[in-house]
Design a protein around this nucleic acid. Sequence first.
DNA 1: CGTCTCCTTGATTGAAATCAACTTAGGTGG
DNA 2: CCACCTAAGTTGATTTCAATCAAGGAGACG
Lengths: 213, 213
Amino acid sequence: MAFAGSAIPMPTHFGSLHTAGALRHYAQHQEIFGEGDDADAYFKVVSGVVRTCRFLSGGRRQVDEFHLPGDLFGFEMGLHRRLCAEAASAATIIHYRHRSIESVAANDKAAALRLFEHAVRSLARAQDHAVLLGRRTAIEKVAAFLIDWAAHFSPDEDVILAMTRQDIADYLGLTVETVSRTLARMEKHAVIELCTARWIKLTDPVALRDLAS
Amino acid sequence: MAFAGSAIPMPTHFGSLHTAGALRHYAQHQEIFGEGDDADAYFKVVSGVVRTCRFLSGGRRQVDEFHLPGDLFGFEMGLHRRLCAEAASAATIIHYRHRSIESVAANDKAAALRLFEHAVRSLARAQDHAVLLGRRTAIEKVAAFLIDWAAHFSPDEDVILAMTRQDIADYLGLTVETVSRTLARMEKHAVIELCTARWIKLTDPVALRDLAS
DNA sequence: CGTCTCCTTGATTGAAATCAACTTAGGTGG
DNA sequence: CCACCTAAGTTGATTTCAATCAAGGAGACG
């Protein structure tokens, strides 16, 4: 909670109405905030991966999004959290406490515009996600996910998955088994190579893109 | 296209940077704008229902949202449309031309805040939609849709569907047949009554809510 | 009255879920 | 360092829910 003597993380993005950030570390699977919690902070991923998600009856889970180092998350228009956030891997996160998003937007024009852009980008992603979930087959979903994730790596680099098969499944509206089988099928067709479970070579990116339809 | 001599529709919502609205009528299934079109206007539904949606290979379609009288739609952050819009029923719509959303937001504080709120509400809806599509069964989807739609009617009133089974199916990520069968199943269990295909009585709203899980 | 489009219902198929072992890979502590 | 333990991942057999294929029925409209 207290500021470290060394680097004090200041948010460069929304330059108003918050205290300096507090750095915290989370173990894998640890909850950052839960559905219904008070929304009095936003967050920035420093290292690791965070998932935001929702739970349904019967232990069903829908992962909304994965947040990577540099990403901001946890904005909420209302007073309460509509999603929960958990560390998908061990993660370091900066907490920026604030009053309300409205007050930030009202007082700082530049911050308001950034917030708006953030909301619009999130909306676009959520709509794309809905198409994926509603109208695509298992192989199209997995291919689309791999392409998306691979975008975080340079084209020649291999792809390292930072999340479990369960996380991928819950993001794509599938089961772990189906994700596993689909990846195996892609490997058999020489589209990818599974060096280890988390280390993937995109042997044939063009074919992969075709699979995503 | 030209202004009628009588009532000129002025937008009360985003009070800047557009000409007065032009009223237009659309036949059922008529396109209002298509994916990739220039985004130089936003719209308000006066009567009828509009669907915004996206198309995939193989004729697959995902309906993003239904827009009812009073609803605004067609905001776009970028220069181009990411979704298309079509009249789900015969519809009357006001067109408000504008330069860019950014210019609106930059010049008018109140309009910017409204736009932001609109984006955030849309985001919340899109995220809820993703959960529905990813992790719910056919009966849960249909029940959730009916509850949502019924909210536009007073509790004692019967529900009139303004869209086809195909529209509902494409909104829920199902087929027409599954929607039809699921409604039939609900009727057999005395949860709803299908007076006609489009006229539904919610016989047991509590049971319906349970079905939506 | 005939011809659309929309909707329903039945039969069958099929893709993904479920159930069930089994394997692999990390991580920890002796 | 290695042996054990657990979480994560794979693979196979089977089931199930929804899709597909197919045929009719019900309205709306010229």
